[in-house]
Design a protein around this nucleic acid. Structure first.
Lengths: 341, 341
DNA sequence: ATTATAAACTTAAACGTTTAAGGTGTCAAA
DNA sequence: TTTGACACCTTAAACGTTTAAGTTTATAAT
C-alpha cells in the first residue's frame, strides 16, 4: 500500500499529461489515442491506482449502492427468510458492481431513523422493502420522498414496483395435496394481522378451501410474529380443543413450533396430523419429521427484486424479468401417510 | 422532497451568510454567534436540509462505514451463525452512526474481488473477517494493504486484533456433561481442515478427553463444510461401524444432520446415543429432540468485534471491552437421560 | 492615541473525480 | 493558399463539504 493514496493527479504527473486526459484514458474515451491510453493504463497499474469512489460518487451524484433494512425482533432473531433474501440480493448486487448497505432494526421508531438515514441522506440510490405491512409507512415515506424502491411481497402491491411469490398457487397446491392425503379439516395459522401477507394467505386459503367441497377450514390469526414460539403457542391452543387433521402454517418456523406442540401433546405427525409449512427454509428438510412445505424461491425473489430496482434507477437497462415467482410444494414426511405404512 | 437537493449554498443564500458560516453553524463551532447559529439551524430545518454524506466523506477521507463479507456456499446457503453475527454487528454499527456494507461471496477468486472492492477502493474504513482460515489470504491481504480489520474467531489470532469465543471452556463443559451422563466413547465431528477452528476444537477436545481418564475419543475430520448434509454423512459413517455413545459436533447444523442420520439408522437419540452441538442456533431448541449445545453468544461476538474495529479506526475511543467471550452449555434432550426415564 | 485581544465572520483551497467546451496541430480537399 | 475536418489533448468548472488562514469591527488595555 502506497504511503498515500495514488490519485489521477499523480498519474498525470508521471505520464506528463493532464488529469483530464488520464481520467478519460482510464475510462476508455474515444478522443485519447490508443498509445496514450495503453501507456496510461499501464502506468496506473504500476502505480497501484484505484479510483476513489467517493469522489466519483460526488461527481456522478449516484452512490451505486442500494439498501436493505432487516426487521428484527431481537438481537438474536434471524428469520432465515431474510437471510436467504439477503444472499440473493447480495449476489445480484455484486454482479452489477453495486454495494449493498444493510441495517438491522426492530420495527418502530428506530426503523424510521434507519430509513431516513439511508434514503434521505442519500447513502443509497434505492431500497428494497421486504414484508410489506398494512398502511406501510415505509412505502409512504419512500414514495413521498421520491426514493426508488421495490417491494418483496406475496402479491402485487399496486401501484408500487414489486416482486412477489404467487401465494394463491402455492396454497392451492398444498390444500390439494392434503385432500389427496385424505385430510378433511385444515387449520391455517395465519401471519400477524399487520402484514399484507395476512390478507393474502387468508384469501388464498379461503379460495382453496371453497374449491374443495368436502373440506372445512379454520383460521388462527393472533400471531404476534412468525416464530417457532408463536407456532408452538398457536398449535397448542388449536390441538387442545377439537384438533384438525391438518395444519397449514404461514412460515416454516411456525410449522416447526407447531410440530413440537403436537409432539408434546402426543400426536404422531404425518399420521394423526399433517403439518405443512411455508418457505422451505434449509432446516425444513432436517426437522423431525422432515417438513412438507411450500418452497418459496427466496433467493430468486431477492435477485429479481434487485434487478427491478436497478432497472428503475437506470443502473441497468430494463430486462423483462418476471415479477411473479411461482412456489412449489415439497412433500416430506410431516404430511405424507406413505411414510407410515 | 425538494425538486433538487438543498445544499449549504442554498442555505447560505437564504440567510445571507457565507457557506463556511453555515457549515460551521450547523456543526456547532464556537466562532459563530449563538443567534446566527440558531437562525441557521432553523432555516436549515425549514428548508429540509440533509447533509450530503458523499461530499462529507470526500472531504474527511473517511467513509464511516465498515464491511462484512459473508462466505456462502450457494445462493441458498445461509449459515445461521453468520446471520446472527450480522445482526449483532448491524446493531452495534447503527449505534455509532456507521454504515454496514455486506457482500456475499463463495470463498475463492470471487471473494478476493469483493475484498479488493471494499478495502482497496476504500468503500469502507475497516472490515470484519469471520471464520478465519489457515494461512488466510484475507488477513494477509488486509495486513499488507494496511486496512484495519478485526477477526471473529474461536481463539486468539496473534498478532491480529480479534474477538473470540472460549472454545476450550465450552468443549470442556460439554465433555464433563457427557461424562456425567455416563458416556464413555465420544466422537468429535470436526470442522473442515482449512479453518482455524479445526485445530482449536481438536486441541480443546483432546485436552478435555485427557482430563477424564475413563474416556476414549475419536475424531472425524473430513467435512467439506459445516452443513446438515455433511453432518449426516459423517454420522452415517461413524455409526455404521462401532458406534460411539456420544457425538460432539462442531456446529449445530452438523449436529442436526447427525441426529437425522442416527434416527434413520434406528438410534434413539439421548438414549442410545447423545448428541451435542456447537452454537445454539435458534432452531436448536426446536429440533426433535431438542439439541444439547454449546451456546455461543454470537450477537455479543458481533458487537464486540464491531466495537473493537471502531476503536481501531479511531471512530470511538477504545473501551476495555472483553475480547474473549465465554460460551455455556445448554442441556436439552439430545444428551440427557432424564428425559428418558 | 495606539495597540492588543477577541468575536464573528469570509476567503480560498482542498478532497478526487468527470466532462463540456476549447485549443492546437496535421492533413486532405478545394 | 485557404478551409475544413479530424485527432488528440488541455482548461476550467463542477459535485457539496470542511477548515486553515485571513479580515473586519468592536472593545479593552496601555
Amino acid at each position: 500500500m502506497p504511503p498515500t493514496e495514488v490519485t489521477l493527479k499523480d498519474i498525470a504527473r508521471a505520464v506528463g499529461k493532464s488529469v483530464a486526459t488520464v481520467s478519460k484514458a482510464l475510462r476508455g474515451h474515444e478522443d485519447i489515442s490508443p498509445e496514450t491510453r495503453a501507456f496510461i493504463a499501464q502506468t496506473a497499474a504500476e502505480m497501484g491506482y484505484t479510483p476513489n469512489i467517493t469522489a466519483r460518487r460526488l461527481q456522478k451524484k449516484r452512490t451505486d449502492a442500494i439498501g436493505l433494512i432487516l426487521p428484527v425482533q431481537s438481537a438474536r432473531q434471524a428469520d432465515p427468510f431474510f437471510t436467504e433474501l439477503l444472499t440473493g440480493i447480495a449476489n445480484e448486487v455484486a454482479r452489477h458492481n453495486f454495494d449493498l448497505l444493510v441495517s438491522a432494526r426492530t420495527p418502530g421508531e428506530d426503523e424510521q431513523a434507519a430509513y431516513r438515514r439511508l434514503a434521505a441522506e442519500r447513502r443509497v440510490d434505492g431500497l428494497i422493502v421486504a414484508q410489506p405491512r398494512r398502511n406501510d409507512w415505509r412505502i409512504e415515506f419512500l414514495t413521498a420522498n421520491n426514493i426508488p424502491f421495490v417491494v418483496v411481497a406475496h402479491q402485487p402491491v399496486p401501484p408500487h414496483p414489486a416482486v412477489w411469490v404467487n401465494t394463491e398457487a402455492g396454497i392451492l397446491q398444498a390444500v390439494i395435496h392434503l385432500v389427496e392425503e385424505n385430510r378433511r379439516q385444515i387449520a391455517l395459522i395465519a401471519p400477524p394481522a399487520d402484514l399484507l401477507f395476512h390478507q393474502t394467505i387468508i384469501r388464498a386459503f379461503g379460495n382453496a378451501i371453497a374449491a374443495q367441497p368436502e373440506l372445512s377450514g379454520g383460521i388462527i390469526s393472533d400471531l404476534t410474529d412468525m416464530s417457532q414460539k408463536e407456532g408452538y403457542r398457536a398449535a397448542q391452543h388449536l390441538l387442545a380443543e377439537t384438533p384438525p387433521d391438518a395444519i397449514l402454517a404461514c412460515h416454516d418456523l411456525v410449522a416447526m413450533g407447531a410440530m413440537k406442540a403436537a409432539q408434546d401433546q402426543g400426536f404422531e405427525i404425518g399420521d394423526d396430523i399433517a403439518i405443512v409449512g411455508f418457505g422451505d427454509i434449509l432446516l425444513a428438510e432436517y426437522s423431525q419429521p422432515p417438513l412438507t412445505t411450500i418452497h418459496r424461491p427466496t433467493d430468486v425473489l431477492g435477485r429479481s427484486a434487485c434487478r427491478l430496482l436497478l432497472a428503475n434507477i437506470n443502473a441497468i437497462e430494463a430486462t423483462p424479468s418476471p415479477t411473479q415467482i411461482d412456489p412449489w410444494l415439497v412433500v416430506r414426511q410431516s404430511s405424507n401417510l406413505e411414510f407410515w405404512v
